[in-house]
């Protein structure tokens, strides 16, 4: 494993790139704040409350729970996944290809490895921030008596969500490195987001099919959803959390060196 791909994660240059993204974000926080707050609110109201009221209780882990309770941890995990993937794919692609701001940064003491880590950290930070906003919305539901979770575990879940988002950003960057043009942006949604999303237990329990059970075992989002469900509904630290963490680390170890190589070829025409 080439350690040279991971050492730059700790360099000041990677933090400088992360700082650049924060600086830009903080300038437009008032407009940027709305979607991450409204989206989970609408989803929880429409699906959790609206659709949930039309449903009989779900059986999860042999226990009968209402749909809103089932949905809440799933939305938390899905927010981290989607936000990170979208940032590292769409936003990073625009900065690299159209704005050429990567090239500007690379004429300084910043090198490509730092830009890649800066983008990954930013995607993960943004995803964790959005997940934290989902937590706020969930607490709001709890305050109105609509939802009961093990609230202290919400805070404890954030570091794992950051790690997960970092791993998902590595998938996004893989597509940033390889997509031929903006017209192909639909591909990752069909190839990654939809399969991972549907086979994840986020919105509904997977039917008990052997094939789906096998697929879900290697789906990090599935383990994250289930791990968070155990943590927030029962208060138990379940092996799903360890499985999710393990898969996230594995994704980073495999994808980051590949991304570095592919992006070097893409940005400099070298390698």
């Amino acid at each position: 494993m080439p350690t040279s791909a991971f050492i730059p994660a700790f360099a000041w240059q990677s933090r400088a790139i992360l700082g650049r993204h924060w600086r830009v974000h903080l300038r437009k926080w008032h407009t940027a704040l709305l979607p991450p707050l409204m989206e989970p609110l609408i989803m929880l109201l429409a699906f959790g409350v609206g659709l949930g009221s039309q449903m009989t209780a779900l059986t999860w882990n042999g226990t009968s729970i209402d749909y809103l309770t089932y949905l809440a941890p799933g939305i938390l995990a899905y927010t981290a996944f989607m936000t990170s993937f979208f940032q590292s794919l769409f936003s990073a692609y625009v900065r690299m290809h159209f704005q050429k701001s990567w090239e500007g940064q690379l004429t300084t003491q910043v090198r490509l490895e730092h830009v890649v880590w800066g983008e990954a950290f930013w995607a993960a930070s943004m995803a964790t921030m959005y997940a934290a906003m989902v937590c706020v919305v969930l607490v709001g539901f709890g305050a109105f008596g609509s939802l009961t979770l093990h609230w202290p575990w919400l805070l404890a879940a954030l570091p794992l969500l950051f790690l997960g988002a970092l791993a998902f950003s590595a998938i996004g960057l893989l597509f940033t490195a390889t997509l031929p043009s903006m017209d192909h942006m639909g591909l990752p949604f069909f190839l990654v987001i939809m399969p991972i999303g549907f086979a994840s237990n986020t919105y509904f329990p997977l039917p008990d099919l052997p094939v789906l059970n096998q697929i879900s075992l290697v789906n990090p989002l599935y383990h994250l959803c289930e791990g968070l469900r155990w943590l927030l509904i029962t208060g138990e630290v379940h092996w799903h959390l360890a499985a999710a963490a393990g898969l996230f680390v594995l994704m980073l170890l495999v994808l980051i060196p590949i991304n570095m190589r592919l992006l070097r070829r893409r940005v400099f025409g070298d390698g």
């Binding site: 650049r20 830009v24 704005q99 050429k100 701001s101 090239e103 500007g104 940064q105 004429t107």
Partner: peptide, 13 residues
């Protein structure tokens, strides 16, 4: 210091 052939400003600043 480098001035590249293309303009490579940071469009957000």
């Amino acid at each position: 210091g480098v001035c590249t052939q293309d303009d490579t400003f940071d469009a957000d600043f």
